[in-house]
Amino acid sequence: MLNKLRITTALIKRRRPDFEFKTFRNAPITPLTKPLNKCKLALITTGGLHLKTDPPFDLTTQNGDCSYRKLPGDIRQEDIAISHKWYNHKFINADLNCVFPIDRMREYVEKGRIKSLSEEHYSFMGHIYGTEGLIKNSIKVGKGLKEIGVNIAFITPT
């Protein structure tokens, strides 16, 4: 596993010699304070997804695009466009749930495993080298989700 990480780091350093993965010492544990069937869930992805009607992510910036896009709770596969160019889109084009498992989560609401889904979900870009803006925006998104009563977020890096 360490070798795979070294190889990945070396490949990125070809383009960005100053690159190092951002590391953290502690895991911020937030215990679940109520049963799952009383919880509201949101999805967050770094797949560069956005509504076709929204502006794409900016792939031209040197440090990566730290912005985010809101995805509505009633989103459908045909509403989605993808800015991210560093992964193969054939899987998500065939089934959104490979990256953004919204249909599976809707089933879990129907079954009563979780109470509800958020009215809004979020997408960020990947391949970001300057993470300061990303940390700032992720805190903003987290606070916003908390304000609308979201208890759980499933995050899917791509």
């Binding site: 596993m1 795979k4 990480l5 990945t8 993965f21 010492r25 992964y87 054939k90």
Partner: peptide, 24 residues
């Protein structure tokens, strides 16, 4: 990529062993 996600110390990680573009 549990190696990369682990560096960020995400508290709860499901490692699916898949590949880029299809974490699920």
């Amino acid at each position: 990529r549990k190696d990369i996600t682990g560096l960020a110390r995400a508290p709860r990680i499901i490692n699916t062993g898949t590949s880029a573009g299809k974490p699920l």
